[in-house]
Design a protein around this nucleic acid. Sequence first.
DNA 1: AAGCCCACCAACCGCTTCCGA
DNA 2: ATCGGAAGCGGTTGGTGGGCT
Length: 320
Amino acid sequence: MKWGEYGVSRGVCGVVMQGRRSSCSYHRYDFDDDFDEIKKGSWKEEEDEVLINHVKKYGPRDWSSIRSKGLLQRTGKSCRLRWVNKLRPNLKNGVKFSGEEERTVIELQGQFGNKWARIATYLSGRTDNDVKNFWSSRQKRLARILRTSQNNTTRTCASPLILEAPKLSSSKEHEESLSKSQSCSSSYIDNSDHMMNQVHVPLEDLVMTPNSIAFEPNMLMHHQLHIRSATTNPNDEKKLGIIESSHIPTHDDDFALPLENQEFSIMPNFIDVLGHGFDNVEIPYVNRQIEKPLTPDSFIDDFPLDMFEHIEPLQSPSQW
DNA sequence: AAGCCCACCAACCGCTTCCGA
DNA sequence: ATCGGAAGCGGTTGGTGGGCT
């Protein structure tokens, strides 16, 4: 039985069952809601028809009038959502994201962050909800891969990678950059000759949130960003990876560049950073740089699962 | 066959932004 | 300038179905 068939809503939402409260123990109510008038839960075909007819007549607007006119017992909000996500013409309902769509979402998420509505405008037939759900699923999948790899080995990669960028020109600029970064901690280190802005980024954050510190365009613009592992000697130039800021798309670019030109030069260096753990692992993505843009996510996606078992434990900075 | 896990997706909520009076 | 309603957006929840043990 589908709850929706009986108008059963999710969570603490109210319920309308043939206009009366049900005593069924499965049904939950929020008595703050006016349950006699507002229906929640799955939509029926009849309701869809009413909504479609309303849009045909008046266009996709005046959502709240649908209820005030007594056409449906739904809130305007609910009607709008139903139209936008399910009833609108030319939607790709039930069609999986193509590879191209996936790459587009990944690229745009890196550029815009979680601006799902904006990202959806680049994908015909996709809604913000589609994009959001796609991304959420993807994040969960990646998280599970990482979790599994950590559980399967006593060796972990819990220590952070360290991203280093030249000190920004002013402390205000520095603060602004950091305030825009998520899930990162930061500190200054006085490296005598040059002040470095040192940002500690857990590996998970680096690979899971491409719009986090490592890829924050505002922070990286006009700078080279050095990346090294906590395991390495800070002076070991061979272990330094460099993100060329010229390769980082900015918010101002408005996605003018073709996708294939927007790749991060961090990727080959990322292997250097991770070091010997990958020595015996075939890296599948290397030849794909030409045919497909590299992103933090596509980068991780192409790893064989057992590859994570080869990650060497990273020492804490105190062990240098 | 049953139970569990997970991916996918619909729909909700709260908050923000927009816009007209 | 301000206020209130409508619309838009992003985060979250929870149901369903398929695969696996």
